[in-house]
Every structure is written in C-alpha cells, then in structure tokens.
C-alpha cells in the first residue's frame, strides 16, 4: 500500500506536468494571435507617425517606392477589390450550382468520384495557379479581348475563382445536406420538381450556411497572394478596369519583401501598414462567416 501511494504521488506530479504542457500547446494559438497583432501594430504605429491616417485612407496614389511618395492604400484596396470581385463572380454561381447538383441531383456514385477530384483543386499550390493564369489563361483571353494587357485583374480573378470553387461548393453542399429531408419530402409530395425543391426549399433553408461559405470565400480571395503577384502586375491603380495591370495589397507586400528595402525605413514599414489593413479585412470577414455558420447550426439543432 505504501509503495502504491508513493507511486500515486509521483504520478500525480507527472499528470500535472502533462496537463501544463498540453495547456501550453493549446495557448500557443493565443500567443500566435497576440504575436500577429503586436508584429503588425508596432510597425504600423511607427508608420502612422510619419504618414497621416487621412492621407493613408483618402489619397488615391500609392507610390512609397518612388521619389514622389504617396501613401494612399485605396489604390491597393481597389486592386484587391476588383480581383476578388471577379473571383466571386466565378466562384459563387459555379459553386452554388455545383453544390445543388451534387446535393440534389447527382447519383451517390457520381458525387463520390467528383467531390474528391474537385477538392484536388483546392490543394494545388497557388504558385501553380499563378503560372497557369499568366501563361495559359491570359494568352487565351487575349485572343478574345485584344485590349487585354499581359498583366491584368481578369485572368488571375477567374483562376482564383476556380481555385475557391471547391470551398464554396463543399461548404454549401454540407449546409444543404443538413437540411432535414422531411422538408424536401413535404415539397415533393406537393408535386414540386427537383428545381423547385432546390431553389424554393433547400437553398432558402440552408441560406445562412451558404452565405457563410460565400463570405469565407471572399476572405480567401482578399488574402490570396501568389496568383495576383504573378499574373496581375505591380502597378497600384485606383481603378476598377479589369483589363489593365493593377496591384493588390498582398502583391505589394511580396514586391517589397523581394526587394532590398532596408528594415526601419518608411518604405519597409508600409508592408506592415498594408498587412494590418489586410488583417482587419479578413478578420472581419471571418467573424461574419463564423457568425453565419453558428446561426445556421442553431437553426438545425
């Protein structure tokens, strides 16, 4: 009995150590967030000592790397916006149609084969999409649109849309799948066609789940880097013309990182200010998406 108790007290200390170590692992995620905020905040704070926040938010030119410096984030935001918009125009209609087909029309066999193949799209490194956008899609589009520049927002937008498609379709399909089949049966019993059931019953019932996937897709598009860096150009432009070179927030960060801009200079601090802007955008989108998802989950508990 004595030795058993000795064992237990040693064991108890060991258990407590394990518990602490595991807690540490779990709290690393909190430190990561704090790290992100601190890393962005300090440099951004320094940046705003030199550049007024008014200029940052209202100037329509972004030329920190030139002699005549302007720090208007709007032109990077415009570039990010136009590419994301094009991506969404591709991903949302295709994604939702694809989800409806897989969830409401297709045979289980077809679904089992097609779904994993579509998910391969999401697993391809983005630099590969960049290559494809620049060297395949852009030349292809040029044969239809003669005025298209070699670098433009259209081609990376389309390619990004296809890349995001599996995420939209798979999340939307999960949401549709969660709609109780009693709802469908009720509509079928009234003589509704699959189209009517899908559009009048299933999609409205799954709407918050579907919207959640859209918002998350926007967040992915806004934060996507390599496709736009390779295929969209490096010319910040306060314009929504999809046919000319532009620059996104992410592409700008890469551009500066590749150069030899010394740390501590105002040019270098701009990437943190740009990063902070990007972080705030995506965080807001992710929070909205999670909120919609929670709402959907509560509806069908």
């Amino acid at each position: 009995m004595k030795s058993f108790l000795d064992r237990r007290s040693r064991q108890r200390i060991f258990e407590r150590g394990i518990h602490a170590a595991l807690l540490l692992c779990a709290s690393l995620s909190i430190f990561t967030t704090i790290g992100i905020i601190l890393a962005l905040f300090f440099e951004t704070f320094d940046f705003f000592k030199e550049v007024s926040i008014i200029e940052f938010l209202t100037d329509t030119q972004w030329t920190p790397l030139f002699v005549d410096k302007h720090f208007g984030i709007l032109s990077l935001v415009a570039g990010t916006f136009i590419v994301s918009l094009i991506a969404m125009c591709v991903a949302i209609p295709l994604g939702i149609l694809c989800a409806i087909y897989l969830s409401e029309y297709s045979s289980p066999r077809f679904r089992e084969v097609v779904k994993p193949i579509l998910e391969v799209l999401a697993g391809i490194p983005t630099v590969v999409y960049g290559y494809f956008a620049l060297l395949f899609v852009t030349p292809l589009l040029k044969s239809f649109i003669p005025g298209l520049s070699g670098f433009n927002a259209l081609s990376p937008g389309i390619v990004m849309g296809i890349m995001i498609l599996p995420m939209v379709s798979s999340m939307s399909e999960d949401a549709m799948h969660a709609v109780p089949s009693s709802l469908r049966e009720g509509a079928y019993a009234l003589g509704a066609t699959r189209f009517q059931v899908a559009t009048k019953v299933v999609v409205p019932a799954a709407l918050s789940g579907i919207m959640s996937s859209f918002v998350l897709a926007v967040s992915r598009a806004v934060g996507e880097t390599m496709i736009v860096t390779i295929a969209a150009g490096q010319q910040p432009r306060f314009s929504l013309n999809p046919l000319v070179p532009i620059e996104t927030i992410t592409a700008y960060i890469v551009q500066v990182s590749l150069g030899d801009t010394p740390a501590g200079t105002i040019e270098h601090k701009t990437i943190f200010a740009a990063g902070m802007t990007l972080f705030i955008f995506t965080l807001a989108l992710n929070l909205i998406s999670n909120w919609l998802k929670e709402r959907f989950r509560e509806e069908y508990r």
Binding site: I36, L38, G223, G275, F279, T282, L285, N290
Partner: peptide, 24 residues
C-alpha cells in the same frame, strides 16, 4: 477563447503569417 481563436487563425491569410515570422 482558444477555440474561437483557432477558428479565426485558420482564416488568416498566409502572408500575414509571413509578417508575423518577420516581426518575431
């Protein structure tokens, strides 16, 4: 808090992690 935080971190663009790595 940890759970919400992990869900949000999963959605942070990878380039932001690059800035984190640069800073830290």
């Amino acid at each position: 808090l940890i759970e919400i935080n992990i869900a949000n971190l999963a959605g942070v663009p990878s380039i932001i992690y690059g800035l984190l790595g640069l800073g830290i």
